[in-house]
Write a protein that binds this DNA or RNA. Sequence first.
DNA 1: TTGTAAGCGTTATCAC
DNA 2: GTGATAACGCTTACAA
Lengths: 368, 368
Amino acid sequence: MLKRDKDGAEAGVDGGTPTASIADVAAAAGVSRQTVSNVLNAPHRVREETRRRVEAAITALGYQPNRAAQALRAQTSRVIGIRIESIQIDSLTTVHDRFLHALAEAVQAIDHHLLVFAADDPDDEIGTYTRLHRTGAVDAFVLYGIDEDDVRPRQMLHLGAPFATFGRTGHDTDHLWVDVDDETGGAAVAQHLVARGHRRIGFVGWPEGSSVGDRRVAGLRGVLDKHDLLGECAGLDLRGQDEIANGVTLGGILLDRPAPPTAVVAASDTLAVGVVQAARARGLVVGRDLAVVGFDDTPTAGVFDLSSVRQPIEAVARSIVRALQPHLPAGGTPPQPETEPSTSEVFAGRLLAPTLVVRASSAAATPR
Amino acid sequence: MLKRDKDGAEAGVDGGTPTASIADVAAAAGVSRQTVSNVLNAPHRVREETRRRVEAAITALGYQPNRAAQALRAQTSRVIGIRIESIQIDSLTTVHDRFLHALAEAVQAIDHHLLVFAADDPDDEIGTYTRLHRTGAVDAFVLYGIDEDDVRPRQMLHLGAPFATFGRTGHDTDHLWVDVDDETGGAAVAQHLVARGHRRIGFVGWPEGSSVGDRRVAGLRGVLDKHDLLGECAGLDLRGQDEIANGVTLGGILLDRPAPPTAVVAASDTLAVGVVQAARARGLVVGRDLAVVGFDDTPTAGVFDLSSVRQPIEAVARSIVRALQPHLPAGGTPPQPETEPSTSEVFAGRLLAPTLVVRASSAAATPR
DNA sequence: TTGTAAGCGTTATCAC
DNA sequence: GTGATAACGCTTACAA
């Protein structure tokens, strides 16, 4: 039952069906197709000796169950879908790429595949989710970069396909999400800087309304408040889109103040790098005359010896898959055991803590 | 025939089969399943009025053909597979990410899906190709980052699955490949620098044996030779792994020479950024005292105002899909028309030209 | 313990 | 022009 070319060779470079089917294995082992299936899906129901014979045939033929047939039968594709974002021209972020890779690994661990697709805009995105869901090509989705007022979770709920998000809206608790605790990250940066003696700490962030950016600054301000520094830092909070040029501009404005900050926290490495440029342009040595800290720990942060808050992306990916798993049609595989004890059985969302990576840009003992 | 929960509602958040099948459409339109299938696959064989009725039912029910059933029937998954590489810690490259996104768009254009997977090493990679191919989950593969002595193409030929590579080995012409003409890129850089009056042009590259790196330097040297500058540039060619630190070290060595180069070409932006650091550390202003040019036009190149050779990644992705298309089991869709005239019908491989993006790092009119 | 039968949704073949 | 039949490869009852 092996498909063969007219000339009798196994199907060549252009495909066909070069693989053995369950019937081939059955024939080779001298049993029925069912027994082969049982060996794979319910080994305990098969006599030891028969099992051995079948397994021998399986390896001999290199048999692998056909995914389409399984999918059709089980009404389950065992595929997770995610949109792949396009590179932001002016942004340095590698978070998305790290996440994709980590997610690929995480879904493989539960015998699923990862399907990626590009979408031009949110409508196109939802349209694709719908299509992939209705055609049965994808069982569940992962949504990336959920923002404060993101409408996609609601639309997904309406779609009815299982999904989990990396990030959360301001209010939603009606869907699965995993997020990095940006507030903690911001607080860690503030503590780090305050401990080093900084009192006038500036912030260069994104416009209000991005959940991530807002939480980062909230964490920062919380600590400043605790140390009674909000007064000294008043007016040192500037905002702009995530572009290096904005970091340069806004950083420059801060540094040109009569009482400039001795440390600047940026909402991203992209902005932070701009601030570094601005400092250098003014003859300041970052790490000595000015402390700068960014977020996301991009490769560029390494170049600039920039302290940065690193997100535990790999853990996020694993956590998302674990959250999704009970909702996957292929309920077979039991959830992977967790590293840390958890209450994941009941959770809608989960927060993971980021880590501050300290480099030279904030290593100076004390400001001027 | 719509699957329903026990309580009669359409299958809820956890899946099931919320979609209408072809039988539902047939019933709704009062025709047989075949007629519905014909409306979709051979409309000309169906009477105008019947077609309308069926199409109405299709939209009414939001019917989308089940992908698993199609795959089983047609022995074709209409899925392209590619390995997703992990982020290189010390490297700045975004080429892989751009490529993934571009490839996702390109395969969607021919009604295919893109499946990505992570692999730990080349063996794991080939193992996964094999599994994906044998299970029928993937029709064809795209291999990224083919190197001079890469054995993967040979292994793929042995596997028998259709594939195309981004990059080429030194000799192979027995498989489909698309590559960027790195030699032309190197030459363009050299011409650019020579035209600006540079005569002592250094090179900081990767160790010999990487096809990409070797070709870049070959293009460079070709132009230097043409201008009789190889003598003056003797000994200005240093090599190291693709890390910023190596750029700093090697760049420093070049700049500390008695007769230092007035321009340094790096095999990558990563190394180039290191060279820039080395120059700054010596009080040199890049773009005035020293010209630096990199490769790949990463976001970081923008930060440093670094001239860089940009690869036409999107075109590569489209070209790869076009090359693959005649070899895909789903031979239905005719190849997309090309922008430029071509001999693609007979090609095994194709070279695409990169572009030099000139920025401030090499914009200086003339060296000292 | 093993085998037989049926069906997942689709489409190609062949009657009507 | 339309509809019945069969088959793609697999697995879940059920029968032997």
